[in-house]
Design a protein around this nucleic acid. Structure first.
Length: 511
DNA sequence: AGGTCCGCGTC
DNA sequence: ATCGGAT
DNA sequence: ATCCGATGACGCGGACCT
C-alpha cells in the first residue's frame, strides 16, 4: 500500500470546487479516496475539512500572518501533512505561538501554491469546495461498493469519518456492520428541525411528546459502573469539567447507560440562568465554578441493551423508570393541539426556551435533523435601522451582505440617534442582496476596511429569539439569532424601536 | 498586574 | 445557531 | 430531503504585550 500524495487530494479539491453536480462530486471523492492508498482515512477527513488532531490552535490570524514562498514541485504526502499538524496540535506553553508559526511556515514552504491554498483551508477547518462530511460519506459508500445506509449507520455509531473510511475500504460491509453502540464512545446526537407552532406539529403527528426545551448545552452521558464520560453535542469530551453531571450519573440505579440531555445552571428561585451565564459556568475550569444541573430526555442504551432502534415511547418509559423526576426534562404525551400549547406556555412561564415536539414512534435517528423532532421557540420582531454593511464573500462576493443594525435613542435636541445592536446576514434572498447592494451604495457616507457605512435611513424588520447582555455593543445588549424578515419602506428611521424597548425584551432596565 | 488578541466551543 | 440555494 | 456555505453572539483560557 502506498501513502497518498497531497497533490492528488488538492487536485480533487479543486475539481470539487468547479463541479456543481452532487453525483459528479461523489465520483471525484471516490477517486480521491482510492488514490490515497492506506491513508484514505486522512483523505476522507481532509476533504471534509476535519483533520484528526484535536485542536490545531491555528486560525484566521495565523494563516494571514503566514507568508512563505511556495515550492516549485509537489512532494508532500498525506503523512507529511499529518505529522506537521501534529506539531501544531501539540505545541503549548510560552513560545508556542512562535513554534506554531514556524511549523506552519515550514509546512507551507514544502507545498506548491495550489497545495498552500488547500492547506490554509484545511488548518482553518473549512474547505469550502462544496463538499463536506455528507458528500464524503456518500463517496466512502461508493468507493467501497457498500450501501450508503450501511456507511451512515457506522458513522452515527462511531462518529469518525476516518475510521469509517478505513473500515469500508479494507473490511467492506461486514466491517461496517460490526460497528455497534459502545458505552464510552460518542454517538452522533439526534437533531431537530424548526417549526413555528406546536399546533401545526401536533396536528400533523396526531400523538406527540411535547417536552420543555431548556437553554443550556447538550450532553451525552456514558455510564459504565463508576466510569462516566460526558460528551457535548459535537462529541467533545468534557468529563473533566463535568463533576456535577458525573456525580448525578453515578447515582443512577444501573450499571451501564447512554443518556441524552441538557446541562445548565439553575437559580435558587427555580429559574434557569441566562444562557451566557450557564456558558460561563460551563466553560470555567475547576475552582469557583457554579453548580450545573443535568436534565435527561432520552436513553440510548441500558445494561447491555441498545434502545436506539426502539420507538421514543419505549425509550421514554425506560428513562422514566431509571431517572428520578428532578433529573428528567418534563414532557407530556398529547393527543391534541391545545394540550401541546399548554405545555409550551408552562415551559415559557418557567423561564425556558420553548418546547420540543417529538414523534412517539420514531427511533433514535442519530446524526439526522429530521421531522421526527421539532423545536418550537417564540419569535420576536423589531424594526431597526441599517448603519453599515459588509461585503460578502464566497457566493455572496460582490454583494453587500452583512448588515449592522441600530436601535434608536432620542438625543437631547430631539433628533434620533442610533446605537448598534449587532449584525445579520440571514434571511436575505439573492434578490434582496441585489437590491440592498444598490440601495446601500446610494446611502454610503464613507467606508473602512470592514464595511460601507451608510446614512441611517433604511428600516429593516428583524426576527430574533431574544436579547443578551453585551460588553461589545454600546447599548449593553445584543440580539440573539437575528435574521431579516424584510425591508420596511413604509417606515422612517424616527419610528424604529428604541434601545429601551430592546433592553426591555431582555428584562433589562432603561439606560 | 492588567489588558488585548486569538482560537475554540456553546448556542 | 438560522437561513436560502442547489441538487 | 439533504447538503452546503455564509456568517451571528457570547465566554473562557492561554500567549503575548505594556
Amino acid at each position: 500500500m502506498t501513502t497518498g500524495r497531497l497533490a492528488d487530494l488538492v487536485a480533487a479539491s479543486d475539481a470539487l470546487a468547479d463541479e456543481p453536480g452532487r453525483n459528479e462530486k461523489v465520483r471525484i471523492i471516490v477517486e480521491a479516496l482510492l488514490a490515497a492508498g492506506d491513508r484514505a482515512d486522512l483523505a476522507a477527513r481532509y476533504l471534509a475539512g476535519d483533520p484528526p488532531q484535536d485542536r490545531l490552535e491555528v486560525g484566521w490570524a495565523a494563516v494571514r500572518d503566514a507568508d512563505t514562498a511556495p515550492a516549485e514541485d509537489a512532494s508532500l504526502t498525506l503523512d507529511d501533512v499529518d505529522a506537521a499538524l501534529e506539531v501544531l496540535a501539540t505545541a503549548g506553553g510560552p513560545g508556542s505561538r512562535g513554534a506554531r508559526m514556524t511549523a506552519l511556515n515550514g509546512l507551507l514552504a514544502r507545498a506548491t501554491s495550489a497545495e498552500q491554498a488547500f492547506l490554509r483551508h484545511l488548518v482553518m477547518g473549512e474547505m469550502r469546495h462544496g463538499a463536506s462530511a455528507g458528500m464524503v460519506a456518500k463517496g466512502i459508500a461508493k468507493a467501497a461498493d457498500v450501501p450508503e445506509t450501511v456507511v451512515r449507520r457506522a458513522l452515527m455509531l462511531s462518529a469518525d469519518l476516518g475510521e469509517v473510511a478505513t473500515l469500508a475500504l479494507t473490511g467492506g460491509r461486514p466491517a461496517l456492520e460490526a460497528v455497534g453502540l459502545v458505552v464510552g464512545r460518542g454517538v452522533q446526537p439526534m437533531l431537530a428541525s424548526t417549526t413555528e407552532s406546536v399546533t401545526e406539529v401536533v396536528e400533523e403527528l396526531g400523538t406527540a411528546v411535547v417536552e420543555w426545551k431548556l437553554d443550556g448545552a447538550r450532553i451525552q452521558v456514558h455510564v459504565d459502573g463508576e466510569d462516566v464520560v460526558v460528551f457535548t453535542r459535537n462529541l467533545n469530551d468534557i468529563t473533566s469539567r463535568s463533576a456535577d453531571v458525573v456525580a448525578a450519573a453515578r447515582a443512577l440505579p444501573m450499571q451501564q447507560a447512554i443518556l441524552d440531555g441538557e446541562v445548565l445552571a439553575m437559580g435558587t428561585d427555580g429559574l434557569p440562568w441566562a444562557f451566557q451565564d450557564t456558558m460561563s459556568a460551563f466553560s470555567r475550569d475547576e475552582g469557583e465554578r457554579p453548580a450545573l444541573s443535568p436534565f435527561f430526555f432520552d436513553l440510548l442504551h441500558v445494561d447491555g441493551e441498545d434502545l436506539i432502534d426502539q420507538p421514543l415511547s419505549a425509550r421514554r418509559q425506560r428513562l422514566t423508570a431509571l431517572v428520578p423526576d428532578h433529573l428528567r426534562i418534563p414532557s407530556v404525551i398529547v393527543e391534541d393541539a391545545a394540550a401541546g400549547e399548554a405545555v409550551a406556555v408552562e415551559s415559557l412561564d418557567r423561564g425556558h426556551e420553548g418546547v420540543m415536539v417529538k414523534a412517539l414512534d420514531a427511533p433514535y435517528a442519530a446524526g439526522r435533523r429530521g421531522k421526527q423532532w421539532r423545536k418550537v421557540k417564540p419569535v420576536k420582531t423589531l424594526d431597526l435601522v441599517v448603519l453599515a454593511v459588509e461585503w460578502g464573500s464566497g457566493r455572496r462576493q460582490g454583494w453587500l451582505s452583512n448588515i449592522h443594525l441600530g436601535a434608536r435613542i432620542d438625543g437631547p435636541d430631539g433628533q434620533p440617534e442610533f446605537v448598534m445592536l449587532g449584525k445579520t446576514f440571514k434571511g436575505m434572498t439573492d434578490a434582496m442582496l441585489e437590491w440592498q447592494t444598490a440601495r446601500f451604495l446610494e446611502l454610503e457616507t464613507h467606508r473602512d476596511q470592514r464595511a460601507v457605512h451608510v446614512r441611517p435611513e433604511q428600516v429593516v424588520e428583524i426576527a430574533l429569539d431574544g436579547v443578551q447582555t453585551s460588553r461589545r455593543y454600546p447599548g449593553g445588549v445584543a440580539l440573539r439569532f437575528a435574521r431579516v424578515i424584510g425591508y420596511r419602506d413604509d417606515k422612517s428611521p424616527a419610528e424604529v424601536d428604541t434601545l429601551d424597548t430592546v433592553r426591555a425584551l431582555g428584562g433589562l432596565p432603561p439606560r
